[in-house]
Design a binder for these strands. Structure first.
Lengths: 208, 208
DNA sequence: TGTAATTTTGACCAGTTGGTTAAACCAAAC
DNA sequence: GTTTGGTTTAACCAACTGGTCAAAATTACA
């Protein structure tokens, strides 16, 4: 029993890693087995098929995302606090699980339907967030902005550097890993500043 | 000769599409052949192997990205104009070639080395952009911001909605394609506004 | 200790995939 | 009309991949 839990968890850890790097199609069951240090047949003993294994790892990954997003949308904290804590939690989550975005994104192209089922079953709702955005505008706390765009902007600023890590790491820091990690950490404050700064109410109206 | 040009181009178009949707591993030579309406052996007649075909399509795609980025970094226009025209061109490019980002991103995880070779051979340099950012700050035109972060932020805001299209389309517009296209178009102005708004110099100093 | 249940493995299989090849096709040149 | 060159195809193959299975190893339990 103890050994089985270990094997099962070793397989999951290996699957997370290999699926994350190679994608669903690119991943090989043999590579997952090697990474986990066990026989390939054991993969099928614990998880019926490659599909089943992927499904589990994928849903687990997507749930982490969804949980954070839902907190952004539902939390009762003040608008500024919500955004700040979301950015903080989200970037931390991404730093700790760098394979997550590539994972979800890899699925987007080849299997959008399942994603949408998953999203709608999770019931991620934007309405309350959009209402709060327009409330904040009416109170004069922020400039006028579409809640959808703001939502996309926040996610984009958090997720993109993780996705583009290998490129940015090379472009900015000559592949120095620790330098890039530092960059990601400073980003936590930078993204907050960027968002809040952009949301400041206009001084002069009719910018455009 | 006429027919050959047609076949070759049909193959490339099909390869762009299939690789874009399925990724390098997920793509099947048979599917590319079917999509192009020709026999599978013809793929190997014109392009030696799957790898070679992918290489060509990938470099072609990446070049489009790099060209735009280089214009952002090198152009002699004013700072504001550079950013505006970059955002405009970049989002247009992405709308016209929605497969591009997933394509490049798919490669990031499984083959970072080649990407980096490609980038360094292209000689994308950030120095001049970063200098210009700090110049603008010293002139009092923008608030203080690290050029690297600004660069990442701009790209992120442009690219992410295209990558996340299937998710966002479902989340925002119940899978209505044309509604999402409209959203992408309004985004062109929105991203400009978002960036410029965030770059406005601070009124009160010591925000944090 | 002996035995039943669970876990792990090596050997193997069927289907798929990228790739090859020899023959067929087809337009232009003579 | 036939020869010549590139173009296209059907049939085929070797390698790989996910998956199976019976036997071995290990653990749980009496």
């Amino acid at each position: 029993m103890t050994a089985s839990k270990t094997s099962e968890e070793a397989i999951l850890a290996a699957a997370r890693k290999v699926f994350g790097i190679r994608g669903r199609e690119g991943a090989r069951m043999q590579e997952i087995a090697d990474e986990a240090g066990i026989n390939k047949a054991l993969l099928h003993y614990y998880f019926r098929s490659k599909e089943k294994l992927f499904e589990i790892v994928f849903q687990e990954a997507f749930s982490k995302f969804a949980r954070n997003v839902n907190e952004l949308l539902r939390s009762e904290a003040s608008f500024d606090q919500k955004i700040d804590s979301f950015i903080e939690n989200y970037i931390t989550l991404l730093i700790d699980n760098p394979y997550l975005p590539g994972f979800v994104i890899g699925e987007i192209g080849s299997n959008p339907e399942r994603l949408l089922d998953f999203i709608s079953s999770r019931g991620i709702l934007l309405d309350s967030f959009q209402e709060q955005v327009s409330e904040e505008y009416q109170k004069g706390n922020i400039r006028k902005i579409d809640g959808k765009h703001l939502f996309v902007n926040i996610i984009a600023l958090c997720v993109f550097p993780i996705i583009g890590r290998p490129i940015l790491k090379g472009l900015f820091f000559s592949n120095d890993n620790s330098a890039f990690d530092t960059f990601l950490l400073t980003r936590q404050e930078e993204v907050k500043r960027f968002i809040h700064s952009s949301l400041r109410p206009d001084i002069q109206n009719d910018d455009l």
